[in-house]
């Protein structure tokens, strides 16, 4: 099982769950990242908290790498690498944005929050996007 690390994975998952819990109990907002950024451009809703959330997310990921560099697969010096050429990534990014916008949620909104709320709608979305993603990986042979 290449690179499988259950302890950091579980701790990371608990932190993400705690993040969702805090945003829900404190602000009554769903910690779905596609929803948080997707409505910055088109919404008349407040954007300040959304930008605050995203900036803190970026900063904490970077800070985590400084404090715990050993968690990265390739060691401290290596930043994560994206897979695929620019055109491939543009198509993938476009589909990710389009799909999460039309489907109203991503891995965090439908996955962590929706399933935590026992939403049948989110369960359907999660089942579909996991299955399609697995089929896509099998079809492209990218791994």
């Amino acid at each position: 099982m290449e690179s499988f690390a259950p302890v950091p994975a579980t701790i990371g998952g608990l932190l993400i769950g705690l993040a969702a819990a805090i945003l829900w109990l404190g602000n009554g907002r769903i910690a779905g990242v596609s929803g948080i950024f997707g409505r910055i451009l088109v919404s008349v809703e407040p954007v300040r908290w959304r930008i605050t959330f995203l900036v803190a997310m970026i900063a904490a990921a970077g800070l985590g790498a400084l404090v715990f560099p050993g968690l990265m697969a390739d060691g401290a010096a290596a930043a994560p690498k994206l897979i695929g050429d620019p055109l491939w990534l543009a198509v993938a990014g476009g589909l990710t944005g389009l799909g999460t916008s039309i489907g109203n949620g991503c891995t965090s909104g439908h996955g962590v929050c929706g399933l935590g709320r026992l939403s049948l709608r989110s369960a359907v979305a999660v089942a579909v996007f996991f299955l399609v993603a697995m089929l896509t990986v099998a079809a492209t042979g990218i791994v």
Binding site: M57, I58, V91, T96, T100, M134
Partner: peptide
Amino acid sequence: PLVLGAVLFGIGWGMSGICPGPAIALIAF
């Protein structure tokens, strides 16, 4: 829309291994 959106996102995610949270967090790197 829910199902179509999930299908499109699934393709994008399967192509890249990047969903929206990590996409934005990766700005740190």
